[in-house]
Design a protein around this nucleic acid. Structure first.
Length: 277
DNA sequence: ATTAATCCCTGGAGGC
DNA sequence: TGCCTCCAGGGATTAA
């Protein structure tokens, strides 16, 4: 599942492939991908536009063209594939960008969870979905003071709180589990029950885990295998995610899988003790 | 107001 | 082999 590091890998991969390319036509084969926009509106807005810049905010991709912008979220299994010449679209290719030089960019998504919308260029960075996001997981903007304050105000479990992108953006199920393991915090701990020392550890863990994953080009598992940016090899550094039954790298206790807020969750039961027990 | 549950989707895995 | 059920899960939406 693309989280911040994977989206960043896709961004850099796309930069090399489509910057400077001009859209001749767009085909939308599954209308819900561009909802709530009308397919015709989406396609008409993009015709004749050239890709000029690709940014990332959290797990969103922001494409700047001449006068319009595209905001794209890959959700679970979305990916972009590049085709040097025209080809018969694959079963799960839902949006096709046909370029004037004959090449194509496809948006593929087996589960059809991803979304893509276009905006007037000057509104792209002010899109409503982006306004809800917390800071990027970087030390300069993801400050201890604000993080600590946000945690104090919430009584819900730390894991789902980190997944909702408001206190910090970019974490998904993999990196949340890895960060909580690194900080030795049980995922069901109430956010406002964390000690100041734990909050400090957690912030640094999030920053470090995501930075390392970005440097590794992301994690390559399951459906992400053939996505753009597939060179990722952070899976070699996973300590708990998908490691059920394997020994904890710190204490050798077998990693356990549980369910927290409807999400599969991996912990070391020795390193990540539940509070108040 | 915050928090929890539901929904969207498909393919792969496991049971029998 | 084939059919059934369950599972994976980000984030918008709805309910409590």
């Amino acid at each position: 599942m693309p989280e911040l590091p994977e989206v960043e890998a896709v961004r850099t991969g796309l930069e090399h492939l489509i910057l400077g390319k001009t859209i001749q036509a767009v085909t939308v084969r599954w209308p819900r991908i561009v909802s709530p926009q009308e397919v015709a509106v989406f396609c008409d807005a993009l015709r004749g536009q050239t890709f000029r810049k690709i940014d990332r905010r959290g797990k969103y991709l922001l494409f700047s063209l001449d006068t319009v912008g595209i905001l794209s979220h890959l959700r679970m299994e979305g990916k972009y594939t590049y085709h040097p010449t025209q080809a018969e679209p694959h079963k799960h290719a839902h949006v096709l960008f046909h370029f004037t030089d004959g090449s194509e960019l496809w948006y593929e998504d087996v589960r059809k969870f991803g979304r893509m919308n276009c905006f007037p260029l000057e509104q792209l960075y002010q899109a409503p979905n982006l306004a809800k996001l917390g800071p990027e997981p970087l030390p300069e903007v993801f400050t201890l003071a604000e993080f600590s304050q946000g945690l104090q105000k919430a009584s819900k479990a730390i894991k789902p709180l980190l997944l909702d992108q408001k206190l910090v953006t970019g974490l998904g199920n993999i990196y949340v589990d890895e960060s909580l393991f690194a900080a030795k915090i049980h995922p069901e701990t109430a956010a406002n029950a964390l000690t100041q020392a734990e909050v400090k550890r957690l912030r640094l863990a999030i920053i470090e885990v995501l930075a390392k994953a970005v440097a590794a080009g992301g994690t390559t598992i399951r459906s992400y295998l053939n996505a753009l940016g597939e060179a990722g090899n952070f899976q070699q550094n996973l300590n708990v995610y998908g490691q059920t039954g394997k020994p904890c790298p710190r204490c050798q206790t077998p990693i356990v899988k549980l369910k927290v807020a409807q999400r599969g969750t991996h912990i070391c039961p020795h390193c990540q003790k539940r509070k108040g027990a």
